[in-house]
């Protein structure tokens, strides 16, 4: 939208929700889009996408060494085999956290995020402070998230692009040796797969 008037008060689009409605109604009238399809898309996001998909990938990697190897070698194919492919998740790379390497994911230019495995990104992931800071002071940012990364642990920050998205495989929590894949998946949080949080221990 063009802004010829650059006075401060006019920077934002007034009644932005109504402008969205205006555009949608025009596109529907011109048959460029089908409003019923929009309802279906929203429903798909709310019911079928989200971090529970990524959690299943992680739990499988924790319990199946062959799958873990495949996932690390060809993330796209291994994730696709579980059905989590599609828009904004076409090409995937899995990153494994270890006791000595801590991976963290950002998209400095925008908000690139693996939708099929993690759903829509939270606002903080898309916010300027996270995008600006995590690449130059990742330890400070992680600390604000309550994650103290020891000095002898290497921190690797991965900048996503429109073409390539990342999924972090967190370290499997101690005391989970007897849990099955489904029980493990329940411990994997969204933030642990962007690696600004940790996988929960079974006592949680």
């Amino acid at each position: 939208m063009k802004h010829d008037n650059h006075s401060h008060a006019n920077v934002l689009i007034p009644e932005v929700g109504l402008r969205v409605k205006a555009l949608e109604s025009l596109l529907a009238e011109k048959k460029a889009i089908d409003p019923a399809a929009l309802d279906l898309i929203i429903e798909t996001f709310e019911t079928q996408m989200g971090p529970k998909n990524g959690a299943k990938v992680v739990a499988k990697a924790w319990t199946d060494p062959k799958y873990r190897k495949w996932l690390l070698e060809d993330g796209t194919a291994a994730i696709k085999s579980l059905g989590y492919i599609g828009i904004q998740g076409e090409n995937m790379v899995a990153l494994e956290n270890t006791p000595s390497v801590h991976n963290v994911v950002v998209c400095t230019l925008c908000s690139c995020y693996p939708w099929p495995t993690l759903g829509l990104p939270p606002v903080w992931f898309k916010s300027a402070p996270y995008r600006a800071r995590v690449v130059i002071e990742p330890r400070s940012v992680l600390k604000e998230f309550g994650l103290d990364v020891a000095d002898d642990v290497e921190v690797r920050v991965w900048d996503s692009t429109a073409e390539l998205r990342y999924l972090v495989i967190p370290v499997r929590p101690a005391g989970t040796e007897n849990l099955n894949e489904q029980e493990l998946a329940a411990l994997v949080t969204r933030d642990s797969m962007i690696r600004t949080g940790v996988a929960q221990s079974p006592s949680h």
Binding site: V16, G17, V20, K21, L23, E24, L27, A32, I33, D34, A37, L38, D39, I41, I42, F45, E46, I87, G119, L120, P122, V123, W124, S127, P129, Y130, R133, V141, E144, F145
Partner: peptide, 26 residues
């Protein structure tokens, strides 16, 4: 600082969901 909202909803306002789906449909 990075501001984190606890228990953030998928959409904060209804139009955000319409915008997402319109973006994908287009």
């Amino acid at each position: 600082p990075v501001l984190v909202e606890q228990n953030e909803p998928y959409f904060h306002e209804e139009w955000e969901g319409r915008m997402l789906s319109m973006m994908i449909a287009c």
